[in-house]
């Protein structure tokens, strides 16, 4: 049954650049990139229970790595993608010890600090990043259509991999750790190691997003990874339903599309209208687009989900 829905949806996504103008195609490419970073935010915020404002940091690390790989003619987009994912994962590995022991609002602030420190480094390390004026990257594709199809393929593959991983025992262990950490620890599970694993995976995904940013935008600067981007990513994921990966892509795409579209419609009034949109969403969709029960996140007394824990114990 699922294939009946999925196949036409995929076909439509592939056909889109032949149905719309270049402007819409370029816009959709940008939204796919941010949607992919949104997936990494959702993986941490929703599934792992580590709400984050810091995924802009591996996003940036990946983007600069990809840009340098391109500028030094080491390889084309696929090589850049792998390099960026690797650098994003390595960045996460280095910072994991700061993040995985904390919970709730404290994680938000630690990751915020990591994001701010990352863009400070990016702004000052002019040799690698071009400084605050940014870096114009080499053009890998010569049409909006090609850029879109490449981004669509990468995002499709990564999201599928994430969905498969979350259905495996690994996904179950993560959710169980989120829902009842004490019980998981008591059953002998190395919860901190699970969280670190998820954090590194999310770093790789955000890094891959960085490579896509470079390919689609052909430009990268510290402003792409500012606090504004981090906040909109988190809010997009909240709107999308935090625990849902497709919801994360849709939510972040919605937020950034709204910002850019509203800004084109009424130049200068985008913040007002975007603010109103957030307020409305908070009232109309209090559970997010995907309806995931994310109200437990950030609460200190975590609601126990005995079934998940029991199942996790059986599987492990």
């Amino acid at each position: 049954m699922k294939w009946l829905v999925l196949l036409p949806a995929v076909a439509l996504a592939v056909a889109v650049p032949w149905l719309v103008d270049d402007y819409t195609t370029a816009t959709l490419s940008r939204l796919l990139v941010l949607g992919l970073v949104g997936v990494s935010v959702a993986l941490l915020t929703g599934v792992t229970g580590l709400p984050t404002l810091g995924q802009t940091a591996p996003f940036a690390a990946g983007a600069y790595a990809a840009a340098q790989v391109g500028l030094h003619e080491v390889g084309g987009p696929p090589v850049q993608l792998l390099a960026a994912a690797g650098v994003g994962a390595a960045f996460a590995l280095l910072t994991a010890a700061l993040v995985v022991y904390a919970r709730g609002v404290v994680v938000l602030m630690i990751t915020l600090a990591i994001g701010e420190l990352a863009i400070t480094v990016a702004s000052r390390w002019k040799a690698a990043t071009g400084g605050t004026d940014g870096l114009i990257a080499t053009a890998a594709f010569d049409s909006d259509r090609a850029r879109y199809l490449y981004a669509l393929a990468v995002v499709g593959v990564v999201v599928t991999l994430v969905l498969l991983a979350l259905r495996s025992p690994a996904g179950l262990l993560l959710r169980a750790s989120r829902d009842d950490e004490a019980r998981m620890r008591a059953s002998g599970h190395p919860v901190t190691a699970y969280l670190a694993g998820a954090y590194v995976a999310a770093g790789a995904i955000a890094g891959a997003g960085g490579a896509l940013l470079v390919t689609t935008q052909q430009y990268v600067s510290p402003a792409d990874f500012s606090f504004d981007t981090a906040a909109l990513l988190l809010l997009g994921v909240v709107i999308g339903g935090a625990g849902s990966m497709l919801g994360a892509v849709a939510g972040t795409a919605l937020v950034f599309a709204a910002r850019d579209w509203l800004s084109g419609l009424l130049p200068g009034h985008a913040p007002l209208l975007l603010g109103a949109l957030f307020v409305l969403t908070a009232y109309l969709l209090p559970r997010g687009v995907a309806g995931f029960d994310w109200r437990r996140i950030g609460r200190r007394d975590r609601a126990a989900s005995p079934r998940a824990v029991r199942r996790a114990n059986q599987e492990a």
């Binding site: 402003a223 910002r259 850019d260 084109g264």
Partner: peptide
Amino acid sequence: DEGDGAPTAVP
């Protein structure tokens, strides 16, 4: 509207 910088200027 260029906004605060590149992320809003590009779209």
